[in-house]
Simulated scan of single mutants.
Amino acid sequence: MVEHDDVTRVWELIDRIGFCMLTTRNGDGLRARPMSAYSAQLENAVYFLTDLASHKDDEIARWPNVCLAFADTKGQKYVSVSGTAEVQNDREKIRDLWSTPAKAWWDNPDDPSIRILKITPSSAEYWDSPGTIVSYIKMAAAAVSNSKPDMGDNVEVKL
């Protein structure tokens, strides 16, 4: 049974890490690209700003199942989110999500080529280790003692 705390932890990690690799299908293959995520736990959604001219929009229209991979390598915290994507032209939401990183791609939130990419998660898995130095010590101790290290929590969550 999934604990409420596990669902909360997934959303906390998504918020904390902020950037992810968005993987989409493109025919027989997969393609991943870095994206800046905006999480909305109360809406059960992860949002991205995207450009109308991007290939991912066409890929999502054909194959809406996606994966988001978040990684905080220094803190040894990782989240993989599976869900369904859709492209929206919600001008109010675009203005709500507008932030400094978006200015690298568009002049202002009223740019007609900006779209919202909404991911509705169906499940997630997270790995929450105590931290790199502690993890290395545990791995070294396990190697010497011929046992497996306790590397923290690994939990699958239905969202």
Rank of each mutant, 00 (worst) to 15 (best):
M1N: 06
V2N: 06
E3Q: 10
H4V: 09
D6R: 09
T8R: 10
V10N: 01
L13A: 09
I14F: 01
I17T: 09
F19V: 13
L22G: 06
N26L: 13
D28E: 14
S36E: 07
S36Y: 15
S39E: 02
Q41H: 08
L42I: 08
L42V: 09
N44R: 13
A45P: 04
A45M: 08
T50M: 02
T50W: 02
L52P: 00
K56V: 10
K56S: 08
K56L: 09
D58V: 09
A61S: 07
R62I: 05
N65Y: 03
N65I: 09
A69I: 11
D72Y: 03
T73E: 10
G75L: 12
Q76C: 09
Q76E: 13
K77R: 11
K77M: 11
D90S: 03
R91I: 08
R91E: 05
K93Y: 02
R95Y: 03
R95P: 01
P101R: 02
K103Q: 11
W105M: 09
W106M: 09
D107C: 06
D110S: 07
P112H: 01
I114R: 05
R115M: 04
L117W: 00
I119A: 02
T120Q: 06
S122T: 11
E125Y: 00
W127M: 03
W127F: 08
W127C: 02
S129K: 02
S129N: 12
I133S: 14
V134R: 12
I137G: 07
V144H: 10
S145W: 13
S147V: 08
K148Q: 12
P149R: 01
M151A: 11
G152H: 07
D153A: 13
V155D: 01
V155T: 10
K158S: 08
L159A: 05
